[in-house]
């Protein structure tokens, strides 16, 4: 479901890992930096072999890794309902969606690898809790309607965040996002249609839908990250054109999109302060519980422990399978070549 989020700005700040300036190491070629700045300013794409500031590289690796991790952790809350989907059509849609998410994870790890890291390294960091994934996936899917609410709201928020990333200054990331956004929009429409069916269904189905929206609305708004005045890295990311709009701008855009959709679904959004502001031309909405947001980011959300444990377990329990694939590849490489093969861990495909 791909929720790259602005969470990373706060996380990076907490970890103290992002340099606030765009400079390379001491003595970096000023001409290279000038060329980079000019390329970014001219909306040209930065490609893997191009010179780039270290901080730009580090910032991208972190964002793309978090995005990739979000795709694969994000499989869990939805996969939780594959075995219980109430019709074969819905089951097929859900399986296809979870499969797409694994595919998105693959695109994004590949894109991140163009920056000199590896999927193994990134997964190790995820498993060790040193890299994050979107806070939204730490909420549980308690009913079938949650699958619809995730599609409509979570994927909707993700798309609002991600469409501008299709114009991100880093070429491989931007190209991955073009492919991902196409599939995401499809998922989002399916989630909406799922809720529509529930909204038009029995009273119990309707209640189920409303309850899911009540639980997912605020966490979805949190996906856009902290308010602009508390998001120090946004500014640098925007100068680098990794980010195109501020957190609050995107959040407002999302709210304005959702209000009429909620009306069409016959569902309400759980915010008594939500109303149209004629003067601003936007919806005003209530304040977000940033304490909850911080707690979830710190690992104290409802499912943080469970999500990471399942991911680690899948990885650990799959180790013998990956080892077997690597050993087989080495053996059969040796048969074909007389030279001594170098064992690698990459033969896991």
């Amino acid at each position: 479901m791909a929720a790259v989020t602005a969470d990373q700005t706060t996380q990076a700040k907490a970890q103290g890992t992002v340099q606030a300036t765009a400079g390379g190491p001491e003595g970096a070629d000023g001409a290279q930096l000038a060329a980079f700045d000019a390329a970014v300013a001219a909306d040209e794409r930065i490609e893997p072999r191009d010179w780039m500031p270290d901080a730009y590289r580090a910032s991208l690796v972190r964002q793309m890794a978090q995005h990739a991790h979000s795709e694969i952790i994000g499989m869990q809350p939805e996969a939780n309902w594959i075995s219980r989907a109430p019709s074969l059509r819905r089951k097929a849609i859900l399986m296809a969606k979870v499969q797409d998410e694994a595919g998105h994870g693959l695109y994004l790890y590949s894109a991140a690898e163009t920056l000199g890291t590896s999927r193994e390294e990134l997964l190790d960091k995820l498993h060790a809790g040193r890299q994050r994934y979107s806070s939204i996936f730490n909420y549980p899917t308690l009913t079938w309607a949650d699958v619809g609410a995730i599609g409509w709201l979570v994927d909707g928020a993700a798309i609002t965040n991600q469409v501008p990333l299709c114009r991100c200054s880093y070429g491989p990331y931007a190209r991955a996002m073009v492919r991902i956004c196409k599939e995401e929009s499809f998922h989002q429409r399916q989630g909406y249609e799922l809720l529509l069916a529930l909204g038009r269904g029995t009273p119990a189905q309707r209640d189920m839908a409303q309850d899911a929206v009540n639980r997912w609305w605020w966490p979805s708004l949190m996906m856009f990250g902290p308010p602009d005045d508390a998001s120090a890295h946004s500014e640098q990311s925007m100068i680098w054109k990794i980010k195109r709009h501020s957190n609050d701008e995107l959040r407002q855009r999302f709210v304005d999109i959702c209000v009429p959709q909620a009306e069409a679904l016959g569902l309400t959004l759980p915010d008594p302060d939500l109303r149209w502001n004629e003067e601003r031309g936007h919806h005003d909405f209530g304040s977000i519980d940033w304490t909850e947001f911080q707690e979830v980011l710190k690992g104290n959300g409802p499912c943080n422990e469970q999500r990471l444990t399942q991911r680690r377990r899948a990885h650990e329990e799959g180790a013998w399978v990956r080892d077997a694939a690597a050993a087989y590849a080495v053996k059969h490489h040796a048969e074909k070549h007389t030279t001594t093969p170098t064992p690698t861990a990459e033969a896991t495909a």
Partner: peptide, 16 residues
Amino acid sequence: EWAGHAPVLEEEVALA
């Protein structure tokens, strides 16, 4: 039932 539990991402895709 394998979704989210496969030994490697490529198998998440293949099994699904």
